[in-house]
Write a protein that binds this DNA or RNA. Structure first.
Lengths: 213, 213
DNA sequence: ACCAAGCTGTGACTGGGGTCACGGAAGCTC
DNA sequence: GAGCTTCCGTGACCCCAGTCACAGCTTGGT
């Protein structure tokens, strides 16, 4: 979001912000806690996750700076609906609820920009619901690999995380990821060497990812 | 939402609205279409659903008047992320995108109210992701029955829809709903007679619904 | 070079739930 | 009440995914 703010807006917010730093893997706030305010992510990367008591996890989104988190509870007043965990060294600016409201009133463009952001989030989440309801792990995995591939620009890239983390991102467990990767390899869709993925048949992967949605 | 509007806001919108009526079961708009504007639901009930090509469906939310739908695409500019279908005879008021923007600017309270609504939606959706990712149909069904029970006020109520529709609401298929209902009955949690449900052990149902989240 | 700690691959097993196929029940219309 | 249509229950079957267990592999540290 706040890349789209103009200078006046930026400084209005800057005066109210409290800077906080987090080492990778820190829980910035946990699901269920009362909402303190909104966080602007200035540097770093955080993930928004839902967790079960037994330790399973699904990642709702990954947010890289510049971005914001905790827009939901700040507006509807409830507790945080999910937890946020830093993935890399992260710098965030916390703005207290009431301060943020005040800025919203004095800068009416801010709510509009917020709405755009919320819209995007909601859209992502709808896609996620669709993927977990109708799709298999295989499909979600294929999609994720394609995303990483295009992000990397080439047909070959390194897995940016362990199978364990990848599993959580997809809402499943390590073994299933491992097995499905092997299966893709056995089918000739990709080659795996150490932790690097060579996509051999992007078209085939795309078929897997999209079939039957 | 627009129950919270004041008179000035209401009339500012009313001037721009186009009234439309829909018989039950009508597709008001379908996923993927370009967004015309925002719909205010004046009377009736609509459901927001995601569908697969093979006809399976999951209901994202049920919205009874007064409410709004299509807030997402109006702000982020993309196509509709899901389809909206009337459940009962429905009257909606369509407000074109640009008209709505204009009203937003002249009535800065409206975006703020919108944000509250979006927040609630997002929260619901997060819950749904959690439910479908980690929960079983059994759990979701138990939860739904409890919801209906409290809504009805007593321990006994009529199923408001066929098993088929109930299945779609839960993101599964008819047979599975049927089986799970039978199972609940066999376990003494409830009694079914024609289409009426008698909850015999609400506590037990609650356990089922909440276990292992 | 070695060891320890984390990663990764795989086999065996289980259970949920989706699909197919029917037969029976309940409502409707004439 | 005959015949239709829509709904509901159930059995058979299969496959995906989650769990447990364990062995082989990296990797980094000293």
């Amino acid at each position: 979001m706040f890349s789209t703010l103009d200078d006046a807006e930026r400084s209005a917010l800057g005066d109210l912000a409290v800077e906080r730093r987090y080492a990778p893997g820190t829980v910035i706030f946990a699901e269920g806690e009362a909402c303190e305010g909104i966080y602007l992510i200035g540097e770093g990367v955080v993930k928004i996750v839902k967790t079960t008591s037994s330790g399973r996890e699904i990642m709702l989104t990954l947010e890289a700076a510049p971005s914001t988190v905790a827009e939901v509870p700040i507006f509807d007043g409830g507790p945080y609906p999910a937890s946020v965990v830093s993935v890399r060294e992260t710098v965030a600016y916390l703005i207290a609820k009431n301060d943020f409201y005040r800025v919203c009133r004095s800068h009416p463009e801010i709510p509009m920009k917020m709405l755009r952001v919320m819209g995007k989030r909601l859209r992502q989440l709808v896609m996620l619901v669709q993927a977990v309801t109708f799709g298999s792990v295989r499909q979600r995995l294929a999609q994720q690999l394609l995303d990483w591939q295009t992000e990397a620009g080439g047909v070959e890239f390194a897995l940016p995380s362990s199978h364990e983390e990848l599993a959580m991102r997809l809402g499943t467990v390590r073994e299933v990821v491992s097995r499905n990767l092997s299966r893709f390899q056995a089918e000739g869709l990709l080659a795996i060497e150490r932790r690097r993925i060579h996509v051999l048949d992007a078209e085939g992967l795309r078929n897997e990812a999209e079939s039957e949605l």
